[in-house]
């Protein structure tokens, strides 16, 4: 396959950045999207150009590190799939593919397609945990959890923290990420004691990081590689309103 890639190039946070165009003519349909970029980079190095920086690690769809907006869609055209699991057979010979970083002021660009997602860590620091110091745990079987709750909690807990929800949201909101953690912990008995303090602190931190507000467009869940359901956001809303009413 022959492809034209239009890639966002930005040397560092202070650089203005620009789109650059590359031709690639030996792309195999069996390559993953990132392997296609590897091939491009190997050529750029030999030709004395600066290779394209992009985040990636596990390349099996679970670490949440890869983060590309491909032709306007976070993680590209295949649903429920991270960029690293997207393969070139979903593109055709002659395609022009535009690759951009996650765009959000809370995710400043570090270089090219690499952004700083530490805002997510700080949202978790604000309360995305159960305070259970090592050694203090009761016997595991003493906390039964109805299977349905465990199931819903699990669905929320599968969030990989990639940030596609923010990238896709017209408001650059981090609600789906935050709501996934609120829902995971809020549905389990272990999470109850800190439930309302948690939601207030996490939403405050989310707002402080400069993410936009949620307007229920549903874009987040449709690009989410793990299919975190939209109802997590409603659960967060319910918890936050209760917490607000309680004061």
């Amino acid at each position: 396959m022959k492809l034209t890639l239009k890639i966002w190039r930005q040397r560092n946070a202070a650089d203005k950045g620009r789109m650059a165009s590359y031709e690639l003519d030996d792309v195999s349909p069996d390559m993953s999207f990132l392997e296609m970029l590897d091939v491009l980079n190997e050529r750029l190095i030999i030709e004395g150009d600066d290779p394209v920086a992009f985040d990636h690690d596990c390349r099996e769809g679970i670490c949440g590190m890869c983060s590309l907006v491909i032709d306007g869609t976070a993680h590209g055209p295949q649903r429920a799939t991270t960029t690293c699991q997207l393969h070139m057979r979903h593109f055709k010979d002659g395609d022009v593919i535009t690759i951009e970083p996650w765009r959000a002021s809370a995710f400043p660009v570090i270089k090219d397609l690499v952004v700083d997602r530490s805002a997510f860590d700080r949202i978790i620091q604000a309360g995305g945990y159960v305070s259970a110091p090592t050694g203090s745990a009761p016997e595991a079987a003493s906390i039964p959890i109805p299977q349905a709750d465990a199931h819903d909690a699990f669905d929320a807990a599968t969030c990989i923290g990639c940030g596609a929800c923010v990238a896709a949201c017209p408001n650059a909101s981090a609600m789906l990420f935050t709501a996934a953690k609120i829902t995971h912990l809020g549905l389990m008995p272990q999470g109850q004691p800190e439930r309302y303090g948690r939601v207030t602190a996490m939403v405050d931190q989310m707002d402080a990081e400069g993410f936009g507000g949620c307007t229920n467009t549903g874009e987040c869940t449709s690009v989410c590689p793990k299919g975190i359901p939209l109802e997590t956001i409603s659960r967060l809303n319910a918890d936050l309103l209760k917490a607000t009413a309680k004061g």
Binding site: V130, A132, A137, P138, A140, A150, A153
Partner: peptide, 15 residues
């Protein structure tokens, strides 16, 4: 320890 932290292990119907 992991259960206390809220790790969502698989559960039986009885919880």
């Amino acid at each position: 320890q992991c259960v206390a932290q809220g790790v969502p292990f698989a559960r039986e119907y009885g919880g």
